[in-house]
Nucleic acid binder design. Structure first.
Lengths: 327, 327
DNA sequence: TATTGCGGTGGAAGCGCTTCCATGTGTGGG
DNA sequence: CCCACACATGGAAGCGCTTCCACCGCAATA
C-alpha cells in the first residue's frame, strides 16, 4: 500500500519552510507576506500539487458557497425539457457572477423530506426550487428564511417567481377564439403542479364566457404524452378544432399525433403551446405559443436567495402571445 | 441586532441533555443509543430546526461527496443543446444511486485554469469534463488520477468516453452517397473541439473515395448557426445536393435556412444531422441522423470516476444511422 | 456475593483550514 | 545611539462535526 496522501496545508508549509499561517496567507492572498515567502510557498504548492480543501475552508470562513438548484419531478422527463435547461443556465450565471458554485439536484416527487435533506446547513448559499409542490416546500427548515426561493408556485414562507399562467392562458385561448375556433381542448400539465390549476381556471373562464365546453386531458409536459393526448382528444371529441397544450414540448407532440392521424394543422385543428422554447419556431408548422421571460424569472429567483432577501412575495411575469403558423 | 445563530450540534446536545457524542450518534444513526436519548435528541432537532453542517461533516468523514460536472464552452449555447442535458441527467443518475451530490459548472473556453480551480480538494468525489479541450485537461492537478474522466476527447492521463465520430460520420456520408447525392457539404462543430477533427477526416475520406470535393463550413452546434450555414453553403456552392451537420441542433437550423431559401428537403437537398436528439424525429421533414448512446457514455464516465478507476483508455461508442425523411 | 459482559454514555482528539494576537526583525527619525 | 513604528512571521485557538476510547451501571452468570 503506497501512502498517496493528498497534500495538506501543513505539507506545503513544511516544504516551503514557513508556518502554516504564512502559507495560508500566501495562498489566499490575504494579509502581508514577503516576496521570498510568497515564492517559496507557490513553488511548494505546484511541487506538491496542493489543492485547498473546500470543506475545511468553508467550515472556518462560514461562507455558504453553493447555490443549490432542486428540480422536483422525474429526472428523465425533466431535462428533456429545454425550459428546465434555461432555468439552470440562468441561475448558474448568477452564481458564477458571485463566484459561488452551483449544485444540481433531481428530487423525487414522492419524498418531500429530500428537500430538507438537501438544505444541509451552512455550506448552502441558497436554494432555488424548480416546480415545487407545496408540501415539499413546507419541509424546508426554518433558519433558511430568505435563502430559499421557488421557480413556480411558492408558499407563505417562500418567495416565488413564476410566469402569470392565468393571463398567459387567457391570452392564448382568446386568440384561438378570435381566430374562429369554437371547440378548444386543453392538455394540462402534471396534476401535482399547482401552477397548472391557475391555467386551467383561466381556460375554463374563457370557455364559460364564450359558451364553449371544457375538454380537458391530463398531460405531463412531455412530447410523448402530447402525441397520445392528441389521439385521445380526437377520439373523445372528434369535432375539436383547436388544442392548447400547457407546454411546448407537449404541443410539439400534439402536432406529431395529429399528423399521424392525418389531421391538418392549422387547417383542421389549430395547435398552441406554452413557453416558447427554441424549437417552437423550428417545427413545421411553426408553433404558436406564449413566450415567457424564463431567464429573467430564474435570475430573479437566484438573486433573491443569494442576497438573502426576505419577504415571501409571489412575483408574476408576463406571458406574451407569439403567433406563428400552427394557430 | 437579534442573534439568529443557526443551531449547532452543541445546541442540540444541550437542549436534549446529552453529550455531543450521543447527539451525533442519534443523528447519524451510527452507534448505540437508548430510546430515551433518541427521542430527546430528535425532539431537540426539530425544535431547534437543526441542520448538520455539510462542510464540517465532510471535513471529518473525508468522504468526497460530490460529483462535479464541468461543461466547457459557452453556457447559453450549451444548455440549449439537449445533448448536454442528456449527459447531465445520466451522470446525475449515477451520482444519485451512490448518494453523492452533483455540482455543475460552466467553464469558459479561454480560461484553462478554471478546471484546476474546480478540482478543489477532497470535497470532490469525481470530475466529469464534457467536451474538454486538451490544454484544459492538462491543467488538472495530479493526485486526482482516476477521479477525472472526459466525455469527448481526453488526454494520455484522462480516460475518455466518446462516440465514434469517425465511423458515425462515415456512415452518414456514405448513406448520402448511396442515395445518389454527389455534392455533399458539411457543417462542422466548433473548431476548438478535437472530436470534430475525426469527423471531418472521415468526411474527407469518403469524398476522396467517391470523387467529391469537400465543402466545409464552420458551425458551432447551435441552430441559429445552422440556418446561416445553410445560406452560406447555397451561396458558395449553389449545386449542393446534401448537407451534413455534425449536430442535430445545427441540422434543424439548416432545415430552417433551406426552407427560408425555398429549397425543398429532401427533394432538392438532403439534410442529415448527428446525435439523434428528441426533436430530430419531431421536425418536418423528420431528420435523418445518427444515434448515439449518450446515456451509456455519460453513465460510463460517471461510473469510472466514482469508482476511481485508473487507466486512461479512450472508449468509443457506436454511432448508428437513423434514416428518416430528410435524407 | 463476586465476577463477567455489554449496551449506553461522555470526554477528548482531531479533520484542514483561517485568523487573531504576540513576537520578532529591520528601517526611519529624534 | 536609541526608540518607535511598520512589516513579516509563527503560535495557537477554534470553526462544527465524527469517532475512538474509557467509563459507568446494570443484568446475567458462576
Amino acid at each position: 500500500m503506497t501512502a498517496e496522501r493528498t497534500a495538506t496545508l501543513d505539507d506545503v508549509a513544511r516544504a516551503a519552510g514557513v508556518s502554516r499561517a504564512t502559507a495560508s496567507r500566501v495562498i489566499t492572498g490575504q494579509g502581508p507576506a514577503s516576496p521570498r515567502a510568497r515564492d517559496r510557498v507557490t513553488a511548494a504548492v505546484t511541487a506538491l500539487g496542493y489543492v485547498p480543501d473546500a470543506s475545511a475552508r468553508a467550515l472556518v470562513t462560514r461562507t455558504g458557497t453553493r447555490l443549490a438548484i432542486a428540480v422536483i419531478g422525474h429526472s428523465a422527463a425533466v431535462l428533456d425539457d429545454p425550459y428546465v435547461g434555461r432555468v439552470l443556465t440562468s441561475a448558474a450565471h448568477v452564481a458564477a457572477e458571485r463566484e459561488v458554485g452551483v449544485s444540481l439536484h433531481w428530487l423525487p416527487l414522492d419524498d418531500p423530506g429530500s428537500l430538507a435533506r438537501l438544505a444541509d446547513g451552512r455550506g448552502l448559499g441558497g436554494l432555488v426550487v424548480v416546480n415545487p409542490t407545496r408540501p415539499a416546500l413546507e419541509t424546508v427548515p426554518r433558519g433558511l428564511r430568505g435563502r430559499v426561493a421557488a421557480v413556480g408556485v411558492g408558499t407563505r414562507d417562500v418567495p416565488s417567481f413564476d410566469v402569470d399562467n392565468r393571463a398567459g392562458t387567457d391570452g392564448v385561448v382568446r386568440h384561438l377564439v378570435r381566430t374562429g375556433r369554437q371547440r378548444i381542448a386543453m392538455v394540462t400539465g402534471p396534476s401535482w403542479l399547482p401552477c397548472c390549476d391557475r391555467a386551467v381556471e383561466a381556460y375554463r373562464q374563457v370557455l364559460h364566457e364564450t359558451g364553449g365546453e371544457p375538454r380537458l386531458v391530463q398531460g405531463d409536459f412531455t412530447a410523448a404524452r402530447g402525441a397520445d393526448a392528441a389521439i385521445e382528444v380526437m377520439k373523445r371529441w372528434p369535432d375539436t378544432d383547436a388544442v392548447f397544450a400547457l407546454s411546448d414540448l407537449t404541443a410539439l407532440g400534439v402536432l406529431d399525433g395529429l399528423h399521424a392521424l392525418g389531421v391538418r394543422v392549422p387547417g383542421d385543428v389549430a395547435v398552441a403551446g406554452f413557453d416558447d422554447i427554441a424549437f417552437a419556431g423550428l417545427s413545421r408548422p411553426a408553433l404558436t405559443t406564449s413566450t415567457h421571460p424564463v431567464e429573467e424569472i430564474a435570475t430573479a429567483a437566484a438573486t433573491s436567495v443569494l442576497d438573502r432577501r426576505d419577504g415571501a412575495r409571489a412575483t408574476f411575469y408576463p406571458s406574451t402571445l407569439v403567433v406563428r403558423d400552427s394557430a
